[in-house]
Structures are given as structure tokens and as C-alpha cells.
Amino acid sequence: MTKITLTIGGSDTWGGGGIQTDLKTFENLQTFGLTVLTCLAVAENDNFVIRPLPPSLIQEQLQTIEASFQLDGVKIGLLASIEIVDLVIDFCQRNQGKFPIILDPVLAFKETEQQLQQDYLKKIKELARLVDLVTPNLKEMERLVAGPPIANRSDMKYRTQQLVSELQTPVILKGGNKIVNDRAVDYYTDNKITHYFIGPVSYKPTIHGAGCCFSAAICAYLAHGLSLIESIEKSQHFVYEAIEHGLPVYDAGNVWHGNIERNDT
């Protein structure tokens, strides 16, 4: 039976991240991908700008999905406003335990919006308590758990354990090669099981969308019935291969998923 996965997130007009990458990942890992669009990322006067969709339209999308499909997994990405987070919180409360839910806590703020940042972070943490896994990168973790820059594996472990203790939700911290130059290092804990995932590093420049790819791949593998640890391990390898086969379609370069692991689910 075909597995059905849903991505709730933003549209990357450049085609390399957000729901575009999620759908490519879902398809490559043999799940049928659905979307609930929350916002659009566009360029305005050479600046990166996020345009949220009206909450009523997001609610209609969620209701349409719930009325039409039996889901096998959900990945949540950029939500863009507190009102949108509230809608997704309601969705997760209605569906908690029915299928795995992965939260990639994309935090895109302007420096001047300090109070909005804090209010938004509180809402994201409220949402994070309802999901099965949270997948922050280093910068996102430094905002979720305030402190100095994360510089080594001990910092990764300490900050992740702090967040898990607060949320009571498993967390995989994406370190990439910023912790160990020649290896990709991610750290997982649920405060019972802890595990470092260490893999090869690709030095190709085609890294746009890598974080979205990782969380979407975990969602897809879980939808196929793999364990969380195995899903994370396979997803780290999948992202490496996606970067290695990336397409330099514009300056940043996109991860690419064409026929990477068709038979590996």
C-alpha cells in the first residue's frame, strides 16, 4: 500500500528548500507527498522575504487533508507566524499518536523583532511537545536553548539534553561538519538513549535544502515502518548522496534527489 506523507511548510521560490525539497525527498523514498502551504519565500530589493499566507487558508488546507487522506507521516517546517503555529498545534493535538510527526524548527527572524522572536519561540516549544522528533541545526538550537555558540561535541550533548528535558520530546541536533571538519556529526537523545551519528562530509557547494531534506527523509522512513534510530541513520546518508548529486542551478546550488535510493526503503 502506498504510504502518504504530508509536509506543512513554506514554498521556496528558488526550488531548493521548503516544500519543494520535501516533495522530492518523499517521492524518491517512495511515499506520496501532500502539502499544506504556510508561506512564500521571495526576493524583494535583493532581500530574502517571507510572505505568510492567511491563517484561514491554512486551516482550509489542513481540514481538506484530514477529510481526504489517512496519513502515514507528517513533516513540519517553516510556519512563519504565531497564528499559523497555533493552527498546527491544533492539528497535532487532534492527530497525536496516529502517525509520526517531525518538526524542523525553521527560525527565520529579523534582528529587530526581539519580542516576536520570544513569543514565537514559546509557541514553537509548545508545538514541539506534541511531535515525535525535533531536528534543529546549531543556530536554531542556540535560539531554542540560549547560550554561547555550540563549538564541540560536549556542547552539542549538553544543549540537546537541556532541550529534551524541557520539551520531553526526542531531539536530533544537526551539527554537519561545523563540529568536526572532516566528518558530519549529528547528536540524538531522548534522555534515555543517546547516539552520535557520524558520516562522511560532502564538499560540494550544492547544499541548499539539506536540512529540509534530512527531516523529510526521516518522516518518509518512519512512514515505511523503520525505527527512529534507523530512520535518522539512513537520512544522514541520504542527505550526503543528495548533496553529492546536487544541481548548481543558481549560485547557492540545490540538493538533488533523482534516483538516489529508490530501492532502499
Rank of each mutant, 00 (worst) to 15 (best):
Q114F: 06
A242V: 03
F99G: 00
Q114T: 15
G10K: 05
F91V: 00
H245Q: 12
N181V: 07
F238V: 08
P200H: 06
S165W: 03
H245I: 00
F99M: 10
T135K: 07
L87A: 09
L29N: 04
I232V: 05
L29Y: 10
L228P: 10
Y250N: 13
K3P: 06
D119G: 01
T160G: 04
L40K: 05
S231R: 04
L173F: 08
R183F: 10
D119H: 11
S215H: 06
D251V: 11
C219W: 03
D186C: 09
Y196T: 05
K3H: 13
N254P: 11
I243W: 02
G97F: 12
I89K: 13
R129K: 14
K75C: 10
Q168V: 02
D86K: 15
M156A: 06
V145D: 09
K192I: 13
S81E: 12
A146S: 15
P205R: 07
Q117R: 15
V49A: 05
L87N: 08
K24C: 00
L167D: 07
G246V: 04
M1E: 13
D90A: 13
S56A: 15
P52N: 04
S56D: 14
D46V: 01
S68F: 01
N259H: 13
Q168K: 15
L133D: 02
T135C: 14
W256P: 02
E44Q: 15
N181I: 06
T13E: 07
L222S: 03
S215K: 07
S68M: 04
D186R: 12
I232M: 14
I84K: 06
A252K: 15
K192S: 08
L23Q: 11
V255F: 05
D46Y: 09
P170I: 09
L163C: 13
G175W: 05
K24L: 01
Q162E: 14
F32R: 00
T7N: 14
G97A: 10
L130E: 09
L6S: 08
A220N: 01
H224C: 03
S235K: 02
G209E: 10
P149W: 02
E261N: 08
G258Q: 14
D155Y: 08
K98R: 15
